[in-house]
C-alpha cells in the first residue's frame, strides 16, 4: 500500500501545489479583511468567480479581434490579469463602501448576513450577464498554455510514477507566489502596509495617528479583491470551464485554509492554502486505497474538513496563529 502511495506522490504534489496556490491567494483576501474588520467576507469567493469571468471575457474579446491570435500568450495573460485585478479591486472597494461600511457599527452578525447577500447578488448578476452575452452561463475560455508535459520521474527514481502537467501549472504557481511575495513585502515593509497592520490592531488609536481609517480599509479591500480576482483568471486558465458557482465551494475552502493557518495572519493563510491543496489531492489519490475501497476520491472534502477539525481541536488559534491574550 505504501508503495502505491509513493508511486502517485509526484502527481499529488503537482496537483496539490496548483490547487493550493489558488487557495492560498484567495485565503489572503479572507484573512486581510478579517484582520482589519473581524468580518468574514463571504462575498470574497464570488469576487474570485467574477474575476474568472472578467479574465475569460478579456481573453475572448482580444482573441476575437483579428490580430488577437498574433499576440503572445504571456502578454495576453498579463493583460487579462491586470484588467481583472483592477476591476475586481474596484468591485471589492465598492462592496465595502455600499454594503459593509453602513453596518460597521452594527452587531457583527448583521455584516455577516450582508456578506452572504452580496455573495448571492454577485452569483446571479454574473450568471445573467454571461447568459445574455454568450447564451450559456457556463463558459469555456480559450486554451492558453495547455501543452501537456510529462515529467519522467520514474526513469531516475523507480519508486515513483511519471507525473503529467500542463504548462499552465507553472504560470499559476509563479503568478500566485509572485502575488504572495509582493503582498508580504507591502504589508511588512511599506508605510501603508504598516498602517493596515496598525488599523487591524487598534482602529481608534490608528485614527489618532492621523491615519484615515476608512481609506486604509478601502485599500485593504482593493488589494484583497484584486488578488482574488486575478487568481480567478489563473483558475480559469488552469481548469478551463467556469460557472457562477465555482466561488462558493472554493471560497469556503480558502476560508478554511485561512482558519487553519490562523485567521488574520497573512503568512498563515498562504501556508494553510498550500497545506489544504496538498491534503486534498493526497486524499483524492489515496482515500480508496487507505480505506480498502470504502471511501473513494469523492470524499476528499470530508478528509479536508476532518483535518480542519483536528487543527481546531488541538490548536484553535490556527497553525501559525498566536493565541489571543488579553492584557489588562
Amino acid at each position: 500500500m505504501f508503495q502505491e502511495m509513493l508511486q502517485t506522490l509526484p502527481q499529488v504534489i503537482i496537483d496539490g501545489l496548483t490547487l493550493g496556490s489558488v487557495y492560498a491567494v484567495v485565503a489572503l483576501g479572507y484573512t486581510m479583511v478579517y484582520g482589519i474588520l473581524q468580518l468574514i467576507n463571504f462575498a470574497h469567493g464570488e469576487i474570485f468567480m467574477t474575476g474568472a469571468y472578467i479574465g475569460t471575457a478579456v481573453l475572448l474579446i482580444i482573441l476575437g479581434m483579428g490580430f488577437g491570435s498574433s499576440i503572445p500568450s504571456l502578454l495576453l495573460l498579463i493583460i487579462a490579469l491586470v484588467i481583472t485585478a483592477l476591476c475586481t479591486g474596484l468591485l471589492g472597494m465598492g462592496i465595502e463602501r455600499v454594503a459593509y461600511r453602513p453596518v460597521r457599527r452594527a452587531p457583527r452578525l448583521v455584516a455577516l448576513i450582508t456578506a452572504v447577500g452580496v455573495s448571492f447578488i454577485l452569483q446571479d448578476v454574473v450568471r445573467i450577464v454571461a447568459e445574455i452575452l454568450t447564451g450559456n452561463y457556463i463558459v469555456t475560455g480559450p486554451s492558453l498554455f495547455s501543452k501537456q508535459i510529462t515529467i519522467p520521474v520514474s526513469s531516475f527514481l523507480s519508486v515513483f510514477n511519471d507525473a503529467s502537467l500542463k504548462v499552465s501549472f507553472f504560470i499559476v504557481l509563479i503568478c500566485a507566489i509572485g502575488m504572495m511575495i509582493s503582498l508580504d513585502f507591502f504589508v511588512n515593509k511599506t508605510k501603508w502596509g504598516t498602517a493596515i497592520r496598525a488599523v487591524s490592531m487598534d482602529r481608534e488609536t490608528a485614527a489618532l495617528m492621523s491615519i484615515n481609517v476608512n481609506k486604509v480599509i478601502a485599500i485593504t479591500f482593493f488589494i484583497g479583491s484584486s488578488l482574488g480576482g486575478a487568481t480567478g483568471v489563473l483558475f480559469a486558465i488552469q481548469y478551463g470551464t467556469i460557472d457562477p458557482y465555482i466561488g462558493f465551494i472554493l471560497g469556503i475552502k480558502a476560508f478554511i485554509a485561512a482558519v487553519m493557518g490562523g485567521i488574520g495572519n497573512i503568512r498563515g493563510a498562504m501556508f494553510g492554502g498550500f497545506l489544504l491543496g496538498l491534503i486534498e489531492m493526497f486524499a483524492s489519490a489515496n482515500l480508496s486505497l487507505l480505506t480498502g475501497g470504502i471511501f473513494g476520491a469523492e470524499y476528499k472534502d470530508v478528509f479536508a474538513f476532518a483535518i480542519l477539525i483536528l487543527v481546531l481541536l488541538f490548536k484553535p488559534e490556527g497553525l501559525l496563529g498566536k493565541a489571543a491574550t488579553e492584557k489588562v
Partner: peptide
Amino acid sequence: RIFANLTVKENLLMGAF
C-alpha cells in the same frame, strides 16, 4: 494603546503617518 505587534520604530513612524 501602543501597537503591540509593531516595533518601537514602527509605532513612532505611525505617529508621523
